[in-house]
């Protein structure tokens, strides 16, 4: 199963980016083999609809689980409709988060967006 992480780096040592739609990259990791692929987030500089475009790009990779910091309403709607499980409120290195995931730490996927639209646009946050 493929897990997507929002991040600024491009390997398993990368730190999780708390933003989803405006994250620099997504690391798509195969849970079983730990093989990974980096996709750069083309929506990072989109004038609008970044969450939707970012969600679409990870769906196109066949992702079933997303681990990130926060998720806005539009991205949530796209991912939720596709049945992707979303775990938010996370931070730290991706390799540590994968271990946690395998230990079964992540049990409560979100049932609604955790932030409003445009929260990842860096107004001094």
């Amino acid at each position: 199963m493929k897990i997507a992480f929002s991040c600024s780096g491009n390997d398993l040592d990368a730190m999780l980016d708390p933003r989803f739609g405006r994250a620099a990259n997504f690391l798509i990791v195969d849970e079983d083999t730990l093989a990974y692929k980096v996709i750069s987030n083309a929506a990072i500089s989109a004038s609008g609809g970044a969450g939707i475009a970012a969600a679409q790009s990870i769906l196109d990779e066949g992702v079933e689980t997303l681990i990130t910091g926060n998720c806005g309403p539009n991205a949530f709607q796209v991912l939720n409709t596709a049945g992707v499980k979303i775990f938010t409120g996370q931070s730290g290195q991706i390799k540590g988060l994968i271990e946690d995931y395998k230990k079964g730490v992540f049990t409560d996927s979100i049932k609604e967006a955790t932030v409003q639209s445009h929260s990842g646009m860096g107004k001094g946050l």
Partner: peptide
Amino acid sequence: FHALAQAGNKILTFENI
């Protein structure tokens, strides 16, 4: 404008965008 998305066979429309 990323006003459309595809989840499975379903097309989602974001009218505000």
